[in-house]
Design a protein around this nucleic acid. Structure first.
Lengths: 341, 341
DNA sequence: ACCCATTATTAACATGTGTTAGCAACGTAC
DNA sequence: GTACGTTGCTAACACATGTTAATAATGGGT
């Protein structure tokens, strides 16, 4: 229409100084008339970059967005995206497969949530040469990762409950999914279990001595599980150690509904220390991990990897016990006649 | 390497039945050896679709993810993505411009949050022929949109507070941003203000008669604003109507910290009815809007538009007042000597 | 008038795919 | 032995860009 080559059009948009003003204006005029603008995908294809970070998620989007943990984590990732001008692509499993989702994501790299280094997804990313960072996995030599010292956090909170005199306890844990049968606990959950077990062993107890319940990490599941736990009348626990704050939220609600007071009748502790933990009444005793910092660090590592800078960085983030109002001494009436009391 | 054409390779991956088993196996073997797999971007370019929905956001990613409102909204959008096998691309402003962000998003369509039909972004999307749906805008003929009947919600909650005898009230509102100066209130905020004004007029009052404070919609801003409001000793309000739940959360906290009881000393109401509203103590009186359903509907409309089906659907979602524990009769001591009491 | 330098513009290539029309080869029926 | 349908594969095109090296045009100096 203007009578110039495609290259001239490209110059008009990308390096206008290389064209005479007259030609440039003619091109822009024509572009406006035709409604033309450079195609996003073609541009990305040619440039070999998308200006977008992917987050490879282990669950459906609906479940992820419902989970305040991820809201916090993605806040951290989002901070880095904001700074660097990246968009954020959330990539849930496709037909229940994280592996199948990979080829449908137009991203420069992935933050991979909750996968161990030996998973097929990791091999696939390596094969494709897509940069990635593992989060909540287990440190492994040639793979960048960001992890949390869950074990010491779990040890600390368990010890805290034990020091308050509790012995009849329930461990409200996260469902490890089907993979557990073959491989046992892994990653953060394995570390948390180990921490609990370690603290127990120091008073001569064992994971067998406490009531272990495993449910999906939602508020509702925490609610139901707590109700079920308290129903077993004679063996009802005096403390519930939840391995996730949302489970603890649900448990506190359930106890309220049962007419039980927290912490006077039953102590409840969480894990993660979500912002909400300090909003609720009673304020929740929980293990703090720097969730947003975890997201930030992972995204920073990923950006480095995309730029081809740093090679295989690892980061282990600490935890700390935040004692608030939901944990207290075991009730006097219940503290007698129990093992190790 | 195999000695076949590129087309054959394409067939091997996409319609294997059109190739003889021998050739196909040879191709796969070579692909494995070379680490080849079809390029995502090229595939999208040729197919003309990305299997990805975009959400065009008015704020930085970090701010968005911190906001429980968006968590809920994106849960709804996410549900549809899950069902339809789409990924979700979060597109924050690029260098403070939503317009600039558009060409960097590889998506099949946009859910556009909080923009009016006359904004440049909307024109740009139309020009590019990218399907989109406006959310929290104002209904407009040729543009698909999903809106909420904020006005009646605001009217109801204001009337509720008035019926409880309050007259000295503060309206804790959301900062409308710089655009307000030129164009006045728009969209949901305009409707909410109108609803409040309408309810006030029914008792002979006016927006001028109440204390209007406008702050960014964060918990911390709500906290600070509430503290400032109560500081003006003789004119301190007996009720705070917040136009957003997070602002109300912050306000409740501030009142606690000031040693004031909610609702005995001061009533507080929210807007949105986030899930958290029912978790907090006191449980928050709030205007419920179906946030997740809003996201679902928007995404459904968008998918229709992408498929080229339905043309310009509109949806107006209702609101309802949820009265809980944070609102009560005006304290006896304060109910005398006030205008219209 | 001629050479050179500078600037404006373009042809050709590279990024990787999916699709369509068509060409060989091959077997089968008559 | 020839006409015909089937199978297996390929050449050419389309999707749209950005980049580089080469070419055309222009003006100025001698």
């Amino acid at each position: 229409m203007v009578g110039v080559s495609r290259s001239a059009v490209s110059f008009a948009f990308n390096s206008p100084e290389r064209l005479s003003v007259a030609t440039r204006d003619r091109i822009f005029a024509a572009a406006k008339e035709l409604g033309y603008s450079p195609n996003t995908l073609a541009r990305m294809l040619q440039a070999g970059q998308t200006q977008s970070l992917g987050v490879l998620l282990p669950q459906n989007l609906a479940k992820i967005m419902e989970n305040p943990y991820y809201a916090r984590f993605l806040t951290g990732v989002g901070q880095v995206c904001d700074e660097q001008g990246f968009t954020l692509l959330l990539t849930p499993p496709l037909r229940d497969s994280m592996l199948k989702a990979i080829p449908y994501a137009a991203v420069d790299g992935f933050v991979v949530c909750g996968l161990e280094h030996d998973r097929g997804e990791v091999a696939e990313l390596q094969r494709r040469g897509i940069p990635f960072v593992l989060v909540d996995s287990s440190p492994w030599a040639d793979v960048p990762s960001v992890d949390v010292d869950d074990e010491s956090g779990a040890r600390e909170v368990t010890r805290h409950i034990l020091e308050l005199g509790h012995r009849r306890m329930a461990l409200l844990s996260i469902d490890p999914g089907p993979e557990r049968a073959e491989r046992g606990y892994r990653g953060p959950l394995a570390r948390r279990m180990a921490g609990v077990a370690d603290a127990l062993s120091q008073v001569g107890m064992d994971l067998k001595d406490i009531n272990l319940v495993e449910v999906p990490a939602t508020r509702m599941d925490g609610y139901r599980a707590a109700k079920a736990l308290m129903a077993t009348a004679e063996a009802a626990p005096t403390a519930i150690i939840a391995l996730s704050d949302i489970l603890a939220f649900g448990a506190v609600d359930a106890l309220h509904d049962l007419g039980l007071r927290v912490p006077e009748d039953v102590s409840v502790t969480g894990f993660d220390d979500l912002p909400e933990s300090a909003w609720l009444r009673p304020r929740l005793t929980s293990v703090r991990q720097a969730i947003a910092a975890k997201g930030r660090t992972a995204a920073d590592f990923l950006i480095s990897a995309i730029r081809g800078e740093d090679q295989h960085p690892h980061q282990l983030l600490g935890t700390s016990l935040i004692v608030r109002d939901s944990s207290a001494r075991v009730p006097a009436a219940q503290s007698t006649g129990l093992p190790n009391a």
